[in-house]
């Protein structure tokens, strides 16, 4: 929205956002699989603000070479590859059959990251919406805890192999981190997000 764009300012374009997300998890001690910035639609007193896709960085499961057989069915894999081919054609303009990058299996976490791009959350709802509304971190570790969460996104993440989901509020949005590993609350990470995603000030050097 115009208000969000104005608040973020020219220094905080999507490339800058990408650098922050990438820096956050590439330099972290923990092994995060992805990072997403959910961007707030801004303050509009006639309607609740909505958190939508701002940008994301998918790192993958670096410590887990693919040794475990995937549980996804052949039909599900074909569906995922078809969607990826279509998206690739949409982006590159090339014919899907010519693209060799889709041959490889689309992992559960890749798929979870991709479908995240279609999601949005009203302030107060869903994991990112709750973090935004309460202005408090939401940190869920463990498949058991994710599977019983009242938030659809937590349950969905668990289904796709995520074991830890964290939503950290910042100015103008929420930073979400996910991992296939068990990661317990880190004050260091919370503080880093506060510094890196404080849009009220100029972006700090990484």
């Amino acid at each position: 929205s115009a208000s969000t764009s104005a608040a973020i300012g020219s220094e905080w374009n999507q490339d800058t956002l990408q650098q922050r997300l990438q820096g956050l998890i590439d330099n972290a001690r923990e092994s995060w699989t992805y990072a997403i910035f959910w961007q707030s639609s801004g303050v509009d007193y006639t309607a609740p603000s909505v958190l939508g896709w701002g940008d994301g960085y998918y790192k993958g499961e670096v410590n887990k070479p693919k040794t475990v057989e995937s549980v996804t069915s052949l039909a599900e894999q074909e569906h995922r590859k078809k969607v990826l081919r279509e998206l690739n054609s949409l982006i590159s303009g090339s014919h899907s059959q010519e693209n060799e990058t889709i041959d490889e299996e689309v992992t559960d976490t890749e798929w979870f990251f991709l479908i995240s791009m279609t999601q949005s959350f009203v302030n107060g709802h869903g994991l990112p919406g709750q973090a935004m509304f309460s202005n408090q971190p939401v940190w869920i570790t463990g498949r058991d805890r994710l599977s019983v969460s009242h938030c659809e996104r937590a349950r969905q993440g668990q289904v796709f192999g995520i074991q830890t989901i964290v939503c950290l509020p910042s100015s103008n949005g929420v930073v979400e981190l996910g991992s296939t590993e068990l990661i317990f609350q880190s004050l260091d990470l919370i503080n880093q997000v506060k510094v890196l995603f404080n849009f009220g000030n100029s972006p700090p050097d990484l």
């Binding site: 999507q14 990408q18 896709w53 701002g54 940008d55 994301g56 960085y57 998918y58 993958g60 990826l84 998206l87 690739n88 949409l90 982006i91 590159s92 990058t101 490889e104 890749e110 990251f113 991709l114 791009m117």
Partner: peptide, 29 residues
């Protein structure tokens, strides 16, 4: 049509995916 921010994110995701696959390829050196 996709919003620009998602197009950029998707392009990055697909490029990185290709890089990871090339790195895993037995022909990579």
């Amino acid at each position: 049509d996709l919003p620009l921010s998602r197009k950029k994110s998707l392009r990055r995701f697909l490029e990185k995916r290709k890089e990871r696959q090339v790195a895993k390829s037995p022909y990579a050196y």
